[in-house]
Design a protein around this nucleic acid. Structure first.
Ligand SMILES: [Mn+2]
Ligand SMILES: [Mn+2]
Length: 270
DNA sequence: GCTGGAC
DNA sequence: GTCCAGCAACGCAGA
DNA sequence: TCTGCG
């Protein structure tokens, strides 16, 4: 069995056993969503989150491209504190299929592109709910969207596919991570000030007091956030789904859209 | 999922 | 021939 | 400087 000239091994192996979703199902999902997803992957170093034996078994993160990856897999050298990593960049459908066949469930992307790895082209706020209070994080997303627009920013919204939301905005890649993080922190502090009962920037869990955590620390060199349209390794096979702001009211959980129902939504959406 | 080293 | 370990660091902020 | 965090 081949898709995009990539041999699919063990197509019947269950990756989401609870939902009886096979590796072939997953590969087909990524093939189908590729046109939407590839623009978000473009030119960004990738961390793969792989579950070759399904999400009920231990998985692993993979940063470095394996020696056996075929030549058509694009890679980039990444400076780290001690040495160099060689990370994958996924700029085409064939690569996406190849990585999915490896059991990659989730794709985690850098906030900077290969042209300048030290200068991010977006700022991300990762909203994490307390325990599992989706109500609060949904409320927070709406408030933060409104807040950012008042600041003259045009924020984008997506479900994380797992428990919360991501809100981000595009910037020119003309400042380094330290500067962008300071900017993000200042905004997060203002949000917290405006909604002190709902939002917190406290890193320690035991100081969050059941509030929604605004994680602005993703805005740092070498950090990643989940790519739009990536699956998440949870029973529900939730998808990180970009939303129109008007859609927020209709969302009842962070994994509302899944491998199974995402295309129903995309079909309706013009 | 796939490889390479240990046995 | 079979078995099995490895497959990710990093940077920040607060204590 | 060490630890929790994601
Ligand atoms: Mn295995
Ligand atoms: Mn999150």
């Amino acid at each position: 069995m081949k898709i995009e000239e990539v041999e699919i091994s063990n197509p019947e192996k269950l990756i989401f056993p609870g939902k009886k979703i096979t590796k072939l199902d997953m590969v087909k999902y990524y093939d189908k969503v590729a046109d939407k997803m590839l623009p978000f992957l473009k030119d960004r170093p990738l961390t793969l989150q792989r579950f070759p034996d399904g999400i009920d078994q231990d998985g692993f993160y993979q940063k470095n491209a394996s020696d056996y990856f075929p030549d058509y897999i694009e890679t980039i050298a990444i400076k780290t504190e001690e040495g160099t990593n060689t990370q994958v960049i996924c700029n085409n459908r064939k690569t996406l299929i190849y990585l999915a066949n490896l059991g990659t469930v989730s794709f985690h992307i850098w906030l900077a592109k290969k042209e300048d790895l030290f200068k991010p082209d977006k700022v991300v706020f990762d909203l994490d709910p307390p325990k599992d209070s989706f109500k609060k994080v949904k409320d927070a997303a709406g408030k933060i969207g409104e807040f950012l627009r008042k600041e003259g920013i045009e924020p984008k919204l997506m479900t994380s596919g797992k428990s919360g939301f991501h809100i981000w905005y595009s910037v020119k890649p003309d400042k380094n991570f330290d500067d962008r993080r300071k900017e993000a922190k200042a905004l997060a502090n203002k949000m917290e000030e405006e909604y002190p009962d709902l939002l917190t920037t406290a890193i320690r869990k035991n100081k969050r007091e059941n509030k929604v955590f605004i994680d602005y620390l993703r805005n740092a060199y070498g950090q990643t956030s989940v790519c739009p349209y990536s699956l998440r390794p949870i029973q529900s096979c939730g998808v990180a789904t970009p939303l129109e702001w008007e859609e927020l009211a209709t969302i009842e959980k962070a994994d509302q859209y899944t491998l199974t129902n995402l295309f129903r939504r995309l079909g309706q959406k013009k």
